[in-house]
Amino acid sequence: MRTLWNSALALLVANGALLGLTPPLGKLATAAGVPPMIWAFVISAGAGLVLIAVVLARGARIRLDRATLIYLSVTAAISYAIPNILIFSVVPHLGAGYTGIMFTLSPVFTLALSTMLGVRRPSALGLAGILVGFVGAVTVALTRGETGAPAEMIWVLLGLAIPVSLAAGNIYRTARWPSDSGPFELAAGSHLAAAIQLLIGIVIAGQMSAFTLLPSIPMIVFLQIAAASAMFALFFRLQSVGGPVYLSQIGYVGSAVGLVIGILWLGENYALLTWTGAAILGVGVAVTTLAQMRANRANVTAHPRP
Rank of each mutant, 00 (worst) to 15 (best):
Y98G: 08
A67Q: 15
G97M: 02
V74M: 07
A40I: 11
T22A: 15
T75D: 13
L49Y: 04
G48A: 12
Y98Q: 12
A124N: 02
S89G: 05
L64E: 08
P24Q: 05
A40V: 10
I62P: 00
G26A: 04
P107S: 07
F103L: 10
L117R: 11
V50H: 08
R58V: 12
Y71V: 10
P107C: 10
T115G: 05
L69G: 10
Y71G: 08
L64W: 12
A53G: 14
R120I: 02
V55Y: 11
M116A: 15
H93M: 06
L113I: 12
H93K: 10
L28S: 13
P36F: 09
P107T: 09
A76T: 04
F41V: 09
P83C: 12
A47P: 05
Y98W: 15
G97I: 03
S106V: 13
A57W: 10
A32H: 13
I101S: 06
G59A: 07
R120W: 01
L25H: 05
L49F: 10
P24V: 03
S73R: 02
R63V: 11
W39E: 14
L28I: 13
R121G: 01
F41T: 12
S123K: 02
I43S: 11
P107N: 02
A31K: 05
I87D: 05
G118F: 04
S73C: 12
R121N: 04
L86K: 12
T68P: 05
S89R: 08
G48D: 06
S106G: 07
R61W: 13
R58H: 13
Y80I: 11
A112Q: 01
L72V: 09
T99N: 06
V55W: 11
T115Q: 02
F41S: 12
L56G: 12
D65W: 13
G97V: 03
G118Y: 02
R121H: 08
V55C: 11
W39D: 14
V119C: 01
I82R: 01
V50W: 04
V34I: 14
L113N: 01
V108E: 00
T22H: 07
K27I: 01
K27G: 01
A112N: 01
T110Y: 03
S114E: 15
R58C: 11
L117N: 04
I85F: 13
D65T: 10
A29R: 02
A96G: 06
I62M: 02
G95A: 09
V42Y: 00
T30K: 13
G59W: 08
G118D: 01
T22M: 06
V42P: 01
F88V: 12
P107Y: 03
T104G: 05
G100N: 11
A29C: 05
V74H: 03
S123F: 06
L69C: 15
I101L: 15
R61E: 12
L49S: 08
H93Y: 09
L51G: 07
I43M: 15
S106M: 15
S79Q: 15
I82G: 00
T104R: 00
M37W: 09
T104Y: 00
S123R: 05
I85P: 08
T104S: 14
L113A: 04
P92F: 02
V34N: 03
A29W: 03
G59T: 09
I85M: 15
L51T: 13
V74A: 04
G97P: 01
G48S: 13
T110W: 01
A81T: 13
R121S: 06
P122Q: 00
T99G: 08
T115S: 07
T30H: 14
